[in-house]
Structures are given as C-alpha cells and as structure tokens.
C-alpha cells in the first residue's frame, strides 16, 4: 500500500504507525501522489508523540536523524526515513553502525548530503545590506535547511536583523534581533544601502586578485563550489 504524508514529523510518525507491519508499504509525500490506491494520512499528534517517545527509548539520536531526513530534498527521502526507522523498531535499538545494510546505507548517505549542504551553505550564503541595515540573502538549497542556517547566523550576528530567503520553497527564516521565525515569502523587494554597491565591488576585486591564474583548476573549483550554488553569490554576478 502507498501512504501519503504531509512531510511533518507528526505526519510521518502517524504514517509510520499505519504502515508498520505492511511488508510492501511505501511512504510518499502528498504532492507526489501516484495513480492508483493510496491512503492519505492525517497527522495525529497524540499517537505521533507516543511513537516519538518510544523511538527515543530505542535510540536517543534517531529523532534528530529523522528531522534531517525529512528535510532531505532527494526523491524518495520519506521512504528512506521509513525503512531506517523500521529497522530500528525491528531490532529494538540503534542501527547506524550497520553500514553494510542497504537501508542504513541509504539513510546515512542522505544524512551526509543534508549535513554537507548545511556546512557548505554556512559559507556560501551572501548577505546584502538593506537601507534599514537589515541583511538579506536569497538562496535555493537542495534540502530544506533554511531554519538551521538561520540559527547559525543568529549566533554569529546577533545584533543584525536578517532574512534568509529560500527562493525555491518560497519561505524565509527571519531574525528580527529578538525572535527567530519562519514565514512564507514569495518575493522580496530590497532597497540596498548606499554603501552596498561599493562593498560588493571590493569583494569582487578581492576575489579576482587572490586567484593565482597560472594554477587554474576549474574542475576542482566546481567540485567544491558546484555551479548551482553560484547563482546568488556576489562574486559570480
């Protein structure tokens, strides 16, 4: 049977309880509804909470992993999470060391991709300063990580309000200097500060001056900084 979930943790855990025991269960996100019979899962916070507690007993770290897996932008990420948690439930304990097991392997690789992108985006995000002094950065990450990034920048720049705009998912993480929150955001109009152009030009100057042209390694550069991330980066504009 195919189970459709809404992508939230409660939705997923409710679906898990429904699908558990079904040998051929496939969990899909709602927007990927295939032809044929499906069960649409309505999140049940109470039952989800119970499942959550049980999983925490079995493996203290697995709910954090679930959070990361649900953020994953890969096709089939919900099924990956399902198979991984199913294995934890069946074996009654942590399984993350079973790296030759295909379900664990898949989960591990998905987790790595999410973690890797978080690491990368901490560096690749580019803020512009608006006339009001607030910082604005558009980005379009593969995974749904904008709030995790926002926590990083909140610690780093506590005195500067900022908006991290996930253009792909049309939402934004906002730090107003006191509160951090998520908000839907289609399009943002930003009035840049008077100095912004000047600093951007200086950054581009720096970027080209620090390069050693006789050692060109474009392939290596692409490996570390894939082209899809360059769209919003000042030095490539």
């Amino acid at each position: 049977m195919i189970y459709l979930t809404d992508g939230t943790r409660d939705g997923f855990l409710t679906a898990f309880l429904a699908a558990w025991g079904d040998e051929e269960a496939v969990l899909l996100p709602k927007n990927k509804r295939p032809l044929g019979p499906c069960v649409e899962i309505v999140p049940d916070p109470k039952r989800a909470q119970k499942a959550l507690c049980r999983f925490r007993e079995l493996d203290g770290g697995c709910m954090r992993e679930l959070d990361r897996l649900l953020r994953c932008g890969d096709e089939g990420h919900i099924q990956t999470a399902f198979r991984y948690l199913l294995l934890i439930a069946k074996r009654g304990g942590p399984v993350r060391g079973m790296l030759s097991h295909p379900d664990v392997l898949k989960a591990e690789q998905a987790l790595r991709r999410v973690a890797h992108e978080i690491d990368r985006m901490k560096g690749f995000v580019r803020f512009s300063e608006s006339a009001s002094g607030a910082l604005y950065a558009p980005l379009s990450p593969d995974n749904d990580i904008v709030d995790i990034l926002a926590r990083h920048f909140q610690k780093r720049l506590p005195e500067y309000p900022f908006v991290l705009h996930d253009v792909k998912r049309k939402k934004a993480a906002v730090w107003d200097g006191e509160h951090l929150f998520l908000a839907p955001l289609e399009k943002a109009e930003v009035m840049l500060s008077a100095d912004e152009d000047g600093w951007q030009t200086l950054w581009k100057t720096y970027y080209s001056a620090v390069n050693i042209p006789s050692r060109e390694r474009l392939r290596q550069q692409r490996g570390y900084l894939p082209v899809r991330y360059r769209k919003f980066m000042t030095e490539f504009q």
Partner: peptide, 18 residues
C-alpha cells in the same frame, strides 16, 4: 560581531581551486 566555527568554514573557491 562574529564567532568562530571549530571546524572552519570555506566561503568561496577561486578558479585555482583554492
């Protein structure tokens, strides 16, 4: 302003791969 990341952080890569 600022803090340090114990694992370090790369912000960009130049055409020489650095």
């Amino acid at each position: 302003m600022g803090n340090a990341a114990p694992a370090g952080c790369c912000h960009s890569f130049t055409p020489d791969g650095r």
